[in-house]
Design a protein around this nucleic acid. Sequence first.
DNA 1: GCATTAACCACAG
DNA 2: CTGTGGTTAATGC
Length: 226
Amino acid sequence: MQKHSCQNCKIRSVAEEFLSPEEFIKLEANSAVVDFKKGDVIIRQKALSLNVVYLRTGLVKIHMQGPSKEKILRLVKAPSYLGIPTTFGDKINNYSVTALTDTTVCFIDASFFKMLTYGNGKFAYEIIIDLCKNELFDQQRHINQEQKQIPGRVAETLICMSEMLFSNSTFSLPLSRVELADLVGTSRESLSRILSQFSCEQLIKMNGSEIQILNKERLEMISQKG
DNA sequence: GCATTAACCACAG
DNA sequence: CTGTGGTTAATGC
């Protein structure tokens, strides 16, 4: 186990700004830093949940095995808490979290994390803010996926990745085609076709996992009208 | 009916 | 693993 100091941590969460020195000492005693490699499962669906995770560095996918196929719910980049809903809301994890890059996380004992929220309103408030933002984001994406056609969903996903994840019009897809399809909510084949279609129309440039957005305006139009 | 959309299958690189 | 072509089912005009 890595040695760590929570109070001196350079990537503390917003909520942690409201912790007292005593709480930091307790947090330190109730948490552990762990490194994961790309592809490692950090939180496993159907496993007992005994901790909350704080993603310190790296990128992960939150995904869920549905009745028929796998669904990627959301990509999350550090820093962020992971697994709060499933730890507070159920004993058993409702979803998995898998590393898309090498990552460093902090496991925090669930009952201790609950104690923190009982005793520190400002800490809890920041956690709630975070959860609410995520819920709004999920609702928005859910309704978009429900009501847009596949080109619109793909365009939206590409723009979202470019803006929210990489802040760059050129980026390296952290997902395979199958995973991207699971994120967009379509088949691998349909996704593949849409991408090559976008590429033909000079909306994007693509080789392998490298994507460059060439015509964002047009992509946004496609995203809008679904 | 006819056109469009998207999933499923098969196969090739 | 990924791209493409053919086929099929559902939906809308």
